[in-house]
């Protein structure tokens, strides 16, 4: 592990819609790890990710990226967004070719044109879609689309990748492929992952550290195996042992 370098930190973060859905005192994510955020429906998992990716402003509190407080506005927010990205549960592919989709983030960053094509080919090969470059993105299956979305997200080598239920509704072979990609990327590039999943088995398979959220609060954090075999909190135990109905 790359250890102690903190990539993302939140302090006194809260979000109130009609009622308070998230309230966190202080939490740090370390560079190079894969985090799994688990918890029952309505625990605030997706809200947490949306705040981290600056898609919504927090009601109170601050987010620190690489030690600097993140502002929601303008160029500062853009600079932070440039270093992280998010893959949604239902990815939206642009109405154009597969290769244009993968190249979108590169174009936004003015990546040299002559190198773009090469990189797109490499990435497509990586997600098992070699030869799909000129296909209309609208004609892909769900699993293929999610793989394109993943290739699109990692194309510009973000330091941090946020995943919101990336494999929900996918068939087992696609789930396996995507999980392997996440593990490979983490091992070989040191990319940090924060993955929200309702699937505790998936969290156990790939996360190194697990955060259990319940009713908008962090109940327990720990190394994956410890959370699953020796949870300290009764609620965590109920959840990982499948007794919490949600």
């Amino acid at each position: 592990m790359r250890g102690e370098e903190i990539i993302l930190e939140v302090q006194n973060l809260s979000k109130v819609y009609d009622k308070e859905v998230l309230k966190l005192e202080k939490f740090s994510f370390q560079r190079g790890k894969i985090y799994g955020i688990i918890g029952p429906s309505g625990a605030g998992k997706s809200t947490f990710l949306r705040l981290l990716n600056l898609l919504e402003p927090p009601t109170t509190g601050s987010i620190y990226f690489k030690g600097k407080a993140v502002s929601m506005n303008g160029d500062a927010a853009l600079a932070v967004r440039r270093e992280m990205t998010m893959v949604f549960q239902k990815p939206l592919l642009f109405r154009s070719s597969v290769s244009e989709n993968v190249a979108y983030g590169l174009k936004a960053r003015r990546f040299p044109k002559e190198k773009t094509q090469e990189r797109v080919e490499i990435l497509l090969a990586k997600v098992g879609l070699k030869g799909f470059a000129n296909r209309n993105a609208g004609t892909l299956s769900g699993g293929e689309a999610q793989r394109v979305a993943l290739a699109r997200a990692v194309a510009f080598e973000p330091a941090l990748l946020l995943l919101d239920e990336p494999t929900a509704n996918l068939d087992p072979s696609n789930v396996e492929l995507i999980e392997r990609l996440i593990l490979d990327l983490n091992r070989e590039t040191g990319m940090t992952f924060i993955m929200v999943t309702h699937n505790i088995f998936q969290a156990r398979r790939i996360a190194q550290e697990v955060v259990f959220l319940h009713e908008g609060r962090i109940v327990e954090v720990g190394e994956t195996e410890k959370i699953f075999t020796d949870p300290q909190d009764q609620r965590t135990r109920d959840f990982v042992e499948g007794r919490m109905i949600y």
Binding site: D75, L78, A79, R82, A108, R109, R110, F111, F156
Partner: peptide
Amino acid sequence: FFKQGVKKEHGK
């Protein structure tokens, strides 16, 4: 790579 990215925000 990232320097280029931050400097110019709009592409084609």
